[in-house]
């Protein structure tokens, strides 16, 4: 299993965010985390990525216990197994698109592979923007660049947080297809957290979150 969550629960001072979450994703399996704002999507992603420590339950990524990991241990599991795409926070601002990819490779794999990075950028159709700074990219280019940055380290699990919420229907479809195509190509397991119901059409495997945290699977 790439991702295995059992009996996960997490509370904030303001109330319960998640309760009794169970989820399993094997290699190459993709899933949509669907729910309205406040349903705990971001909390679940932070727990999976080791940015928060769960109060109850277990999270295993590629067999490693992310839920029990602390500090640098969690950083290490995340670095080796997880790629993350955020909605707006896409690239390191001071570096060019290509340098972002090389840095991500170096941090996640310990070395640079410019050929792979170039091929990925070409596959995403932004090779002409390879030297552009993040601020010089359009919304669509930046979103594709973020996907490239997350995939270039060939993570086992790619977590995307609201990757399409700000996009119109056509661009939503294009980004979703890019994610799926490239995840398929690299054998990456995809977990997309969103409140964008349009994504149901392209990703049939859905985990619905409803406040205060109930889940149900939708085939």
């Amino acid at each position: 299993m790439v991702l295995e969550i059992r009996g996960l629960a997490h509370d904030y001072f303001s109330g319960t965010a998640l309760s009794q979450i169970d989820l399993s994703l094997g290699k190459g399996q993709h899933s949509l985390l669907l729910g309205p704002s406040g349903s705990g999507k971001t909390t679940l992603i932070n727990l999976i990525c080791g940015l928060l420590t769960p109060q109850c339950g277990t999270i295993r990524i590629c067999g490693e216990d992310m839920g029990a990991a602390r500090g640098s241990e969690a950083d290490d599991i995340r670095r080796r197994h997880v790629g993350i795409v955020f909605q707006t926070l896409r690239l390191v601002s001071a570096l060019s698109l290509f340098d972002n990819l090389l840095l991500a490779q170096r941090l996640q794999r310990g070395g640079k592979d410019p050929a792979t990075a170039r091929a990925l950028v070409a596959a995403l159709g932004i090779e002409h923007r390879i030297k552009a700074r993040p601020a010089e990219l359009s919304q669509g280019e930046a979103q594709r660049a973020a996907i490239a940055r997350a995939l270039v380290g060939e993570p086992a699990l790619l977590v995307a947080d609201e990757p399409t919420s700000a996009l119109d229907g056509e661009n939503m479809r294009r980004v979703a297809d890019l994610l799926l195509e490239n995840a398929e190509r690299t054998g990456t397991t995809l977990l997309i957290a969103t409140h964008d119901e349009r994504l149901k059409d392209v990703m049939p495997n859905v985990v619905e979150l409803t406040p205060p945290g109930a889940q149900r699977r939708v085939a």
Partner: peptide
């Protein structure tokens, strides 16, 4: 101003 960048670097795998 760069806190977002620093957080992204951490997420990308850079240690503190």
């Amino acid at each position: 101003a760069r806190e977002g960048d620093l957080a992204l670097l951490r997420v990308m795998g850079a240690g503190k």
